[in-house]
Amino acid sequence: MNLSRAARWVLRGATWLGLAFLYTPLIVVAVLSFNTATSLSWPPKGLTLDWWRKAWKVDGPSDALVNSLQVAVVATIIALLLGTLAAFAMQRFTFFGRSSLSFLLVLPIALPGIVTAVALQNSFSRTIDLGLFEFRIGFGFHSLVIAHATFCVVVAYNNVIARLRRSSANLLEASADLGAHASQTFRLVTFPLVRSALLAGGILAFALSFDEIIVTTFTAGSGFETLPQWIFANISRPNNVPLVNVMATFVMLVSIPLAWMAQRLSDGDGIGTGR
């Protein structure tokens, strides 16, 4: 396309403006985490690593970070297992109610978080009477994992089923035709085909769980705090604002390579595009 010089400059300017709009707040947070002053003043008075040291020493932030990581990892693993199994079943078999089930599987991610949150909070706090025995799920690490898994499953399921749909159904037959037993077909064809989709789904699920706050607030109970909760609680305490900046920057640094990887994995590596 031929653009006039002026038009090109305008476009270039607009691109940079857009990027600045997106990233200035992030950069501000990152820089402020090295600020000597506790207030959110700009420009920073001087630079220091004190906040970074302190963030790991005091109890709150590091505990919250570990909690968040644990919940995210366990929820992701559960989601990958259930989501993959569901995707295989949906792809492989036709049965009564299949399309409704498929809809029900992806619904949790479309529902407003607050609705899911209230529903889960309600069921976890109830005592469920099964006649023979009764039980109550209660709150804590386990309830949070269950809650997060509900929406993480969707991501895993969607990624895997999209990959399965895009790859020709004949591939499994072709493999058997060439002499491969079921286990060989799984190892040499099925798994390699869904591997990158699994990884991408896993990263997304992890990210979703890691920064979730609405459902978390309702289902964590009082004794358990995740990083987003800690940040939300401390952003209003002037003394802790620099620590909040440190945690935010840290999370950002960790997310960048993950986001990059997820992006790479989900758009074309030539795999899964049929023939």
């Binding site: 020709s168 591939l171 072709a174 035709d177 060439l178 085909l193 899964g272 595009t273 049929g274 023939r275």
Partner: peptide, 13 residues
């Protein structure tokens, strides 16, 4: 026996 499929069914990976 071996089959040549209509859509070839070559392994994309």
């Amino acid at each position: 026996v071996n089959t040549v499929f209509q859509d070839y069914a070559l392994f994309p990976h």
